[in-house]
């Protein structure tokens, strides 16, 4: 039974590792960025399988809840809001020298750290056979909430700071939109043609014109997308 368990664990590790690496490569290299975002979501849920192998059930659950449910949904939503990102011509840096340097640096990071991981005598540094399989979530909760409760409050403050930053950025975005309408270089900055002198008491434009003005914002970004 013991031999079966370890063999099963090795097979499961190799299966999950292969799936995760292939999905990560696809998320970086697939031509369609919508598919790439979906591949990233599936990769994040397979990483939770590693956490289950490593005796961390709560971390696995949080990985699925936040990464797969929140962050990958956020990325897919960002792709939806930015149709220009679906342009597959901006895949990589055009200059071959910069691309070569990038591949070289990341490849050397991977190579050196993989050598370090496989050759370093971990068994002398960390005593083996001391896996605490009886660890349950209650101990983790007591560590995080009871002994180190400040961390949780700091996480709440980080979340609120991100939210305030998002609101401030969206307000700046709206101010930029308003500048298009009322600003110095806005819609109304075009000079009035001399031969058609507008009446001073002319009523403002009918309602169709501002409506089309409003919807022309997303359409302007559409033509670059294709």
């Amino acid at each position: 039974m013991q031999g079966f368990e370890s063999a099963f664990e090795s097979v499961e590790f190799l299966l999950i590792a292969g799936i995760v690496i292939v999905l990560a490569y696809l998320a970086l290299e697939h031509k369609e960025i919508v598919y790439a975002a979906f591949f990233f979501g599936i990769m994040a849920s397979f990483v939770a399988g590693f956490f289950l192998l490593l005796e961390a059930p709560f971390v696995a659950g949080m990985q699925i809840a936040v990464y797969t449910g929140g962050i990958s949904a956020l990325i897919i939503f960002g792709v939806l809001l930015l149709p220009r990102a679906q342009d597959s011509t901006l895949e990589a840096i055009e200059s071959p020298r910069a691309k070569k340097i990038g591949i070289l640096v990341s490849g050397s990071i991977m190579f050196i750290s993989a050598i370090l991981a496989l050759r370093f005598p971990w068994s002398e540094t960390i005593p083996e056979g001391t896996i605490d399989a009886s660890l349950d979530v209650a101990l983790l909760a007591e560590w995080l909430w009871g002994d180190h409760g400040v961390y949780v409050q700091i996480v709440a403050l980080i979340m609120v700071t991100a939210l305030v930053g998002v609101i401030a950025l969206m307000k700046m975005d709206k101010a930029e939109l308003m500048k298009d309408i009322t600003g110095e270089f806005g819609i109304e900055a075009r000079p009035v043609p001399e031969e058609i002198e507008p009446e001073p008491e002319e009523s403002p434009e009918p309602e169709e014109a501002p409506e089309s003005e409003k919807t022309s914002e997303p359409e302007a970004s559409e033509e670059v997308a294709d």
């Binding site: 956020l74 149709p83 939210l163 969206m170 975005d173 914002e217 559409e222 294709d226």
Partner: peptide, 19 residues
Amino acid sequence: PARMSFPYSYIIYTILFVI
């Protein structure tokens, strides 16, 4: 194209969901 641009203001709801 079928993939059109949505108004940007929708992303704030997704961010509220993540928090």
